[in-house]
């Protein structure tokens, strides 16, 4: 029963963390944003608290399926620069974490850092993020991904917002280093869901909310 409860909790957390790469890594002042992300490489869960609009702090859990290791980290996201234009917005973030990883037996220190940049208006969206991860019991690795999105219609405040996107992941250590995933993002109120299938047949599912 306890195992079931823990598994359920982990699934929720993982569903939460997966979106950290998907949605904005910093919420509004005093906002809390749980996220879950699942793709061909990993399952992750993350919850971030934003004391201000310029940084957030939270907990991240990630499970890398191919390498079979788990990562637990304290994650800090910083907004380095924001460009507020009349019809668009651009952002540059730094995302870093430090924690523990478990692979086989034993728990060892792990750390990661990376940058994320995005630009969007109400019709188009483009984003890029990268990350370098290092740890005592894992081979250091680098990952990057980019997105291009278009909104088929312009929704007003409170409407259901729909985005059609393509995500390209580059994971040099993987058997197939480049993955392309067409996906749909649905966003209404404070809830965001993304779903897609990659060219390798792997499912992407992300969820995020904020309160």
């Amino acid at each position: 029963m306890q195992k079931l409860y823990i598994s359920g909790l982990l699934v929720i957390i993982m569903m939460t963390a997966a979106l950290s790469a998907v949605a904005r890594p910093i919420s509004y002042p005093s906002g809390i944003a749980p996220m879950v992300m699942n793709d061909g490489t990993s399952n992750s869960a993350n919850i971030q608290y934003s004391p201000t609009a310029t940084y957030s702090i939270g907990y991240t859990f990630e499970h890398f399926r191919e390498d079979n290791f788990n990562l637990h980290a304290l994650q800090v996201n910083n907004l380095l620069k924001r460009w507020n234009n009349p019809d668009s917005q651009g952002n540059l973030y730094l995302e870093s974490g430090i924690g523990l990883s478990g692979k086989g037996e034993g728990i060892h220190p792990v750390a990661f850092t990376g940058a994320e940049a995005d630009w969007e208006d109400r019709r188009f969206l483009v984003s890029y993020k990268n990350r370098y991860t290092t740890g005592q019991d894992i081979n250091d690795f680098y990952m990057e991904s980019a997105r291009l999105g278009v909104a088929p219609y312009i929704g007003e405040f409170g409407d259901l917002h729909t985005w059609l996107m393509v995500q390209v992941d580059h994971n040099p250590r993987a058997k197939d280093p480049v993955t392309v995933t067409p996906l749909v993002r649905l966003f209404k109120g404070t809830n965001l869901v993304e779903a897609g299938v990659s060219n390798q047949g792997k499912i992407l599912f992300n969820w995020m909310t904020q309160f």
């Binding site: 509004y28 917005q89 969007e120 409407d159 917002h161 904020q210």
Partner: peptide, 8 residues
């Protein structure tokens, strides 16, 4: 530019 901004 987005609902997220408006919610904030």
């Amino acid at each position: 530019v987005c609902d997220f901004c408006a919610r904030a």
